[in-house]
Amino acid sequence: MAEALTLDAFARWLKQFAETVHDNVGLLTDLDSAIGDADHGTNMDRGFKAVVSVLDGNGFESPDALFKKVGMTLVSTVGGASGPLYGTFFLRFGSALQGVEAVGTQELGKALRAGVEGIVTRGKAELEDKTMYDAWAPALEAFDRAAPEGTAAALAAAATAAGEGRDATTDMLARKGRASYLGERSIGHQDPGATSATMLLESAAATLA
């Protein structure tokens, strides 16, 4: 793995994702209004706008410092459940990169896994609870399978797998979060968290390759 990921690349990833979220505020909110409290789009948009301004306003010495800042920013600005979930993801993602000199495919994979484990710990979600974990879990597997082919291939595979996982949430019965109050009525709607998680991986595939 000749090329290691740079701080600039990480910043591009987050900015790209922030843009995607912004462009899809309506979609995310609509998905959430069907089964939740209709704030996922606006919450994520507010959180990642704050992230972008933090990235623009500060220089960072290392990826773990950058992601720690990103995580704390999300914790304090998102407001809804995605605050602690994405916040934890980036905090753990950053911690996994602590002391890493060059971030290659393997290191990226480890960081992603650490972040997702954080999400699982935080949200206590299991597979098929109709949460973002249903997108993350297959994505991690796909990433690892494609890892020998390099970062670009691994991220592309992860994004594709996340999309499939996201689509599969439509038929699931929600067992976590506000959607779980709807019971059977949650079936037939795509999970907004799985949708934004997929976007995050798609942005990664587009910027970190």
Binding site: N43, V75, T77, G79, G80
Partner: peptide, 14 residues
């Protein structure tokens, strides 16, 4: 409680 007086949300740092 809340992100501000009017915005619903919670903040682990707070």
């Amino acid at each position: 409680a809340g992100l501000d007086e009017a915005t619903f949300g919670t903040d682990a740092a707070a």
